[in-house]
Each structure stands twice: as C-alpha cells, then as structure tokens.
Design a protein around this nucleic acid. Structure first.
Lengths: 244, 244
DNA sequence: CGTTGGATACGAACAACGTTCGTATCCAGT
DNA sequence: ACTGGATACGAACGTTGTTCGTATCCAACG
C-alpha cells in the first residue's frame, strides 16, 4: 500500500483497527522520530538524522511516509492521541478546558519545537479533529453558543501552540548561550531598564512585570482571560446562552 | 562597519538618525525583500532569490545582513515601523487595542507567511519593543494592572501572529489547489459532515459554524474575547484595578 | 594629482537538506 | 520451488544558507 493512500485514509475515516501490518513500520518511525525530538529538539529531526536513528538511509523513510510534512502530521497526530479528553461536566467546564490546554502544552513542551509543525498543519487530520471535538463538547456543555464555542476552541489551540513555540525557541537560545538575547531573567530585566526612558517610559518602569512569572503563570493567565471573556457574553454576538 | 555590529546596535539603543550611509544598503535590501514577499510569499524569499532581485550574487547580501535570521528581524522591524500607535485614550482603550492588533494583522497579511518569522523572533528588537510599549501604554491607561497589561499584550501579539500564519498557510494551499486539504468552504463543510457522527457528534452537527465567518470575524471574536476577559477582573489575581 | 588602506562586492565552492530513481531484496500465495 | 508485487536502499539531483579568497571601490592623505 502506498504511503499516499495511507495518508489520504487518515483524513477520511478512523483507522479500522485491523490486523497489524506485516512488518512493523510507520509507528516505529514516528516513535523514533519523537525520541529524536525529545532528545535533540525538532530542528534536529532531519530525514537523515531519523534514518540513521533507524540504521538505514534516508530513502527508506519514503516507504512509510510520503513527505516530511506527512511525518509532521503523524507526529502531531500521535501527540493528540496522548490527550485524555474528560467527559463534559457542565459545572466545571472552565477547569476542564484549562486542563485540556495544559495537557496539550505539556505534550508540546515535551518535544521542544514541535509546535512549529503544529502551527503549519491542516486542521483535518483526524486526531486533531478528535481533540477539537472534545473541546467543543466541553464548551457546549458549558452552555456556550456553538459559534463562540468553535471559535474559542480554535483560538485556544492556536494560542497554546504559539506559546509553546515561543517557549521552545527561548529555551533553545538559552541552551546555546547566544549572547545577543538575554537568556536569564536578570539579564533581560537589565536590558529593559537600560532602554532610554523618554521613548520607552512604561517598558522601563514595568521591566519587572515584563520578565515576571514563574513556570506557566503567563499561560494560565491567558487561558483564564479567554475563559472569562467567554463567561461574560458580549452584547452584539452573544457567546453564551442567556439563562432560561 | 560590520553587519554584526549593526545588529547588536539595533537591540541596545535607537538608531541616532545620523547621516545617510555612503552607499545605499540595508534599507534597500529589506525593501526589495519585502517586495519579493508581497509578490511571491515568504517561502519564496531565499537568499538567492533576493540576490537576483538585487542583480547580484548571494554572497553580497552578507555585507548588509549577518544572517537570514537577521534579515527576518529587519523585516519584522520594518513592519512594526509602519504601525501608528494612538495616544492612549482611557475611554476607548479597548477599541484602541483592537485597532493596533488589526493594523498588525494587516501588515502580516500584506506579506504572506512573514508571521512565521515573527513567531521565531527575539522580543528585544527595538521596533518590537516600541509596539509593545504602545500597547502597554493603552492598557495602563485603561486601568489594567501592570502585570495583567504586559501579559495581555504578549498574548494578543502572539495570537495575532499565529492567526496570520494559519491564514497565510491556508491561502497558500488554496493557491496550489492541493487536493487533500479542502480549500473552499463548501468542500470543508462537506468533509466535516462526512465524518462518522458516532465518534464526532458535535463536529458533524456544527460543521456550519466550524467553517463560518466572513473576513476576520474569527479574529475580531478572539480579540474581543481577551479584552472582555480583561475588563472582568478575576478574583484571585486582579487584572483590573478596582474603582476608587 | 597619485597612492594607499579599509570597507565593500562577488564568483566559487561547501555542507546539509528534502526528495527521486533504479535496482536489489524480501515474503506470501500458487 | 517459483513467481510477482510490495518493501528497502545506495546513489544521485536540485536547493538551501553560508564562507573564503580575491577583486573592486572610494575617501582621505602625502
């Protein structure tokens, strides 16, 4: 079977859980690919690097994967498989959404830089649709308007991917000790306070806040921001059903 | 003067508006680079393509630019220069923020795919700091807590870039008429409704909403979502000062 | 006005990337 | 045991970003 046929099938109907393929193949490839990413980052995942990790040449990979873009799709699909989507609880829909986003974030950060691939991905891969379906279910259970639910789900996933991409890039630069970008917080704060205060008054004054935030405080803030916005219906386009 | 020195200077102090350089150089390069992007997309901007657009070889570019990453930085910097940052009006801070984000979005979309470069950029380039300063000023004028203001500004810019990247990629795929990804709305809706309803009940039921939205309805929705969240202070970490 | 020295320009080449082609190898079914 | 279609892979192609050595320019000095 062609890898192209495999790929087209992944976008049309769920894999029917048939008998195992004759020789272990595609899942092995994405397994070792994820291993390479976890160890050396997404930028290190080249076809050649993956091939040598499998003790073979680059050409052999194209028997299992139609493209590098296809490989990326498989990787993100595998990531989405790991997410556990809770049964919607109308009383805790905001916490549930927050939890799903945090899971997604942890998966992204486990494989540094992979969110770059997620941002360039088609939204029709079935595993991605599955997590979209899960978030949609939770939001609808929270009595959010269908239109607002799908738009908010999209915005949340988009933000999670962008946040993780930014974080991965910063970490990667810190690892390289690139001198131009301040890599630790004190250095960054110093850089901001050293700016000319007449042209950047607020930036210099609030340099502390700019570099503040332990762990994922910034992440939690933004997710809560969006969920708060959802809970408070805008007048023009109601995003939340009025109580009966 | 080395291009490396030029680059380091751009991150430390504003350019002192000195006399014009002896031979027209860096600005010409970024000008033609932006022209190439506007005409053929960011993916088409290779060092060689840019060199031929300047009637020279690839090596010559490295007299003005230290890197391709450096070129990206200059391009985003130029984009940020085009933004007009309004004087903060406490009565209209939400509209002002919305306007700045819309300007940023239009700039990104004018040069398709360039938001990819923006997402991979250091936040210390001076022109980027300038727009951050502008947004910070507006948010602070809206009586938003400093911590919430800087975090919200970051989240907004991050979302704008991610939104434009997604949109540019979708347009580019539509231009190529790639058969796997449904490129017009009807085709996409058909794809969603064709999914098995037992595993994707909400996705199939709300396929219309998933593909709905003229122009930047989705964009406006998300920005408003965040601004609404800002206006409604969360109890634990107040994002907006209580009225005196 | 002629010369010189440091900055600028560029042809040629290198390493690394994704990808393709032709052929060799495997293995199930007759 | 044999055969045919699927799988594997060495070698190569076209592009990409980048560097090196040298040629060229141009302002300032003698």
């Amino acid at each position: 079977m062609n890898p192209k046929e495999r790929r087209a099938a992944r976008h049309l109907h769920p894999t029917p859980d048939g008998p195992k393929p004759r020789r272990r193949t595609v899942e092995q490839v994405v397994d070792t690919a994820l291993g390479v990413i976890a160890a050396e980052g997404y930028e290190a995942l080249t076809m050649r690097r993956l091939a040598t990790a499998l003790d073979t040449g680059p050409a052999s990979l194209y028997n299992h994967v139609v493209n590098k873009a296809d490989l990326d799709e498989l990787l993100i699909g595998r990531l989405c498989t790991q997410l556990v989507l809770p049964d919607p609880d109308p009383a805790a829909w905001q916490e549930q959404i927050h939890g799903v986003c945090a899971q997604m974030r942890d998966q992204y950060l486990k494989y540094p830089g992979i969110s770059r691939a997620a941002l360039a991905m088609a939204p029709t891969d079935l595993e991605i649709v599955r997590v979209g379906e899960g978030m949609l279910a939770i939001l609808l259970a929270g009595d959010v308007t269908p239109q607002a639910a799908v738009w908010a789900g999209d915005a949340l996933l988009l933000y999670v991917a962008a946040y993780c991409l930014e974080l991965s890039i910063a970490d990667q630069r810190a690892a390289r000790n690139d001198p131009v970008w301040g890599h630790d917080r004190d250095e960054l704060t110093r850089r901001f306070t050293a700016l000319p205060p007449e042209t950047f008054p607020h930036t210099t004054r609030h340099a502390a806040e700019l570099t503040a935030g332990e762990a994922h405080d910034r992440f939690d803030f933004t997710i809560t921001l969006m969920l708060d916005g959802l809970a408070q219906p805008s007048a023009n386009r109601p995003s939340r059903r009025p109580p009966p």
